[in-house]
Design a protein around this nucleic acid. Structure first.
Length: 512
DNA sequence: AGCCCAGCCGCATTGTGAGC
DNA sequence: GCTCACAATGCGGCTGGGCT
């Protein structure tokens, strides 16, 4: 058997293609897929993969936090995907590992890589940890940092570049910082490998041949830390044994998204087939019952202060929060599951809070969502409207535009014979030119409609809730919307139940 | 509303092994 | 033993998330 996989991803506001020719062999209930050109790995994949709530949510999660691939050096506009995934929260790590194993049983390896700025070890918690490490291994505390020439007799180009850099707000010289880096590199790595190993063990991921844990310390003040003791940690999962199947993996993801977006039973290339129209698939949840009896329907060990039927809808209220109207029933359909994962990746709430909120006070929560792609926005809005009433789902929306796109803003202004006026001390604030602001609104509504056959929710229902343009930081123009934080206390428990309800009986006991 | 920085993910470098 | 191409690994820039 042979096949070809093609698809598009949008990154950096550019349409890019992925494309790969495969051959595959029948192997009972599995198929063995490999690249037609003979390179890469032979990968077994089940012939039929059941798309349950958690797997669909996983694809949503990957869509937000996973790597989509990098551009082929020989072919402009073509990306070659590598499967890797950034995630710090340990329960989500465990979740991702389980789902990857379901998709690719057999020859698959995991590398957990922990990155950190070594400035973390120069003061505060980091320095204390370095101290205890040296006390344990050598009997005395952290030794004084020696001269660079001693710890690093032969410097390379990267070192020379580092030494030439200028950091006006950091005390000490680059040579001293670099010496610190090389002298303590082994110790710093050992500390992180031990930490990650323990963390993985706490969620049931034990050392094994197919699991590798590494730490990657960066030169001081390079990776975001602005001062000694500052942290800029990154936790990544790289998958091995899957070379060549990245395109197929992305295609699975896009086909699932496609069925949810268009609400069709079979995806455009036939890779995904539901038992009925996606909007008619999945269990129906009674929200009155959920928030009264389900272990996931709790926050800080409490049930809502009020949850009552009012005609065919519900009125609900958490202690010290506002009253809100809810729909009585919710179908946990593919759209809902996919967005649950997507929100876990892209949402504005720290992930740890979502796991701890059942037994602890989560404090302030916020409901916000940013995306440069119309499809993600539409899916998110549709999801919220399944639980909440339309007018509560979106308070307002704005467009954030990065500096490399300012020429477009200026040209838009010129067309209208006006100049671009920016608010805020550093110009990051809201755009003050009405003509430009309105032109950008029109553009954003077109972006929101682009992936759909008809009009998007943003343009048909929420166009008048447009707030402003924000020429902030940098980056591709993107749409940002937010809703009342009251929604969080209803949406988050349902979201967590969707992803973990099938594998975790009581979130208060099993998380943290 | 305004602003900024740290984490995501792209890409450069290094490692590895097949082919000649 | 050398070369080349692909895989694995390590590093850091940019931007999207999030704080005040």
């Amino acid at each position: 058997m042979q096949g070809r996989v093609v698809g598009c991803v949008i990154t950096d506001a550019k349409d890019r293609q992925y494309r790969r020719e495969y051959v595959c062999d029948d192997a009972g209930d599995k198929i063995v897929v490999r690249r037609e050109d003979g390179n890469g790995d032979a990968v077994s994949i089940p012939k039929i993969i059941e798309l349950d709530e958690s797997l669909v949510a996983f694809f949503g999660l990957y869509s937000g936090d996973g790597a989509k691939g990098s551009e082929d050096r020989n072919e402009v506009g073509r990306i070659v995907p590598t499967i890797s995934f950034s995630q710090k929260e340990k329960h989500l790590v465990r979740f991702a590992v389980d789902q990857f194993r379901r998709l690719f049983p057999g020859n698959i390896r995991f590398t957990f890589s922990l990155g950190e700025d070594s400035a973390y070890f120069m003061a505060g918690d980091g320095l204390e940890r370095l101290n205890s490490y040296y006390l344990e291994t050598t009997g005395s505390g952290t030794p004084a940092t020696k001269a660079l020439a001693v710890v690093r007799p032969n410097i390379n180009d990267k070192d020379r570049q580092y030494i030439a850099e200028v950091r006006p707000d950091v005390a000490g010289t680059n040579e001293e910082h670099l010496a610190f880096y090389y002298q303590h590199q082994e110790a710093m790595e050992a500390i992180f490998v031990a930490e990650k190993t323990a963390e993985l063990a706490s969620v049931g991921i034990q050392p094994a041949d197919d699991i590798k844990i590494t730490a990657s310390l960066r030169r001081p003040f390079k990776k975001g830390a602005r001062q000694p003791g500052g942290s800029s940690r990154s936790d990544e999962i790289h998958l091995g044994g899957l070379n060549g199947v990245g395109e197929l993996f992305l295609k699975m993801m896009h086909e699932i998204e496609d069925t949810a977006l268009r609400d069709v039973q079979t995806s455009s290339q036939g890779l995904v087939r539901w038992i009925a129209k996606p909007s008619e698939v999945g269990q129906t949840l009674d929200l009155l019952d959920f928030f009264t009896n389900n272990p996931f329907g709790k926050i800080n060990r409490e049930r809502p202060a009020k949850i009552a039927l009012d005609g065919d809808r519900l009125l609900g209220q958490w202690r010290r929060s506002s009253e809100i109207r809810l729909r009585r029933h919710l179908r946990i359909d593919p759209l809902w599951c996919y967005v649950a994962g997507l929100y876990l990746a892209e949402g504005s709430t720290p992930k740890e809070a979502l796991f701890k909120m059942f037994g602890e006070n989560p404090g302030a929560m916020a409901m916000g969502f940013t995306s440069s792609e119309g499809a993600s926005l539409e899916l998110m809005l549709r999801t919220l409207r399944k639980v909440f009433f339309p007018e509560d789902c979106l308070e307002a929306w704005k467009v954030k535009v990065g500096s490399q796109y300012f020429p477009e803003l200026v040209v838009t202004g010129l067309k209208h014979g006006v100049s671009m006026l920016r608010g805020g001390a550093s110009g990051d604030g809201k755009l003050r030119t009405m003509e430009v602001s309105l032109a950008i609104k029109q553009w954003a509504l077109e972006v929101a409609d682009a992936p759909l056959d008809g009009a998007s929710l943003l343009s048909s229902e929420y166009a008048d809730r447009y707030s402003h343009v924000e020429p902030t930081g940098s980056g591709v123009a993107r749409i940002d919307f937010w809703a009342s934080s009251t929604l969080c206390r209803w949406y988050f428990p349902l979201l967590m139940h969707t992803v973990f309800g099938g594998i975790v009986a009581d979130p208060m006991e099993e998380f943290y």
